[in-house]
Design a protein around this nucleic acid. Sequence first.
DNA 1: CCACGGATTGGCT
DNA 2: GCCAATCCGTGGA
Length: 204
Amino acid sequence: MIPQHSKNKLKRNFYTRDLLIVAKDLLGKILVKHDNDKIFSGRIVEVEAYDGLIDRAAHTYSGKTKRNEIMFNKGGYFYVYFTYGAHFCCNIVTGEKDHGTAVLIRAIEPINNIDIMIKNRFGRELLNEKEKFNLTSGPGKLCQALGINKSHYGIDLTGDKIYLINANKINDDSIVVAKRIGIKKSINLPWRFYIKDNPFVSKK
DNA sequence: CCACGGATTGGCT
DNA sequence: GCCAATCCGTGGA
């Protein structure tokens, strides 16, 4: 089901490129999480970019803290944070060391172990077909579905625990560029990218 | 030490 | 569409 060949795993040089390039290129790639004997996976369909240098909404805008320090690493690390007293959100660190840039994964299209994702999200069976699209269509939702939490903070994405599998680049015609959602600062930066017409995107 | 508010979600009007 | 829930990182006193 998942293309497991190691040559398809994205390497360091994918992540260390410029924030906005990586953000758009992440669309369509497969996020994979190994959980003991189980493998969760999903196709990235929506992301947002954050850059501490010029972006007041970025967690790195005010400099390095214990919470955001992984964002100052070179690209290819996993930044997980907890928010609103309830939700984890996960990011892909990008760029060179000390850039303080990362891409928030806002939505994925489930591929593997969907039945467990349903259990993780709802603690019950699906009530209807529509709920299928409510599984991973938001940053907090997808972390809950995949069981991503603070223990995954700082994971090296070139390792074997959490990583990305390459896939064909999404054509620019199929990428929607929009303003980011749910922030109060730097609200006009057009740094949200999602796959056009994909039903797992968090919001039109 | 304490107060504030958030890269969200789900339920109710 | 509006708003409460819920906790902890962060920053100011």
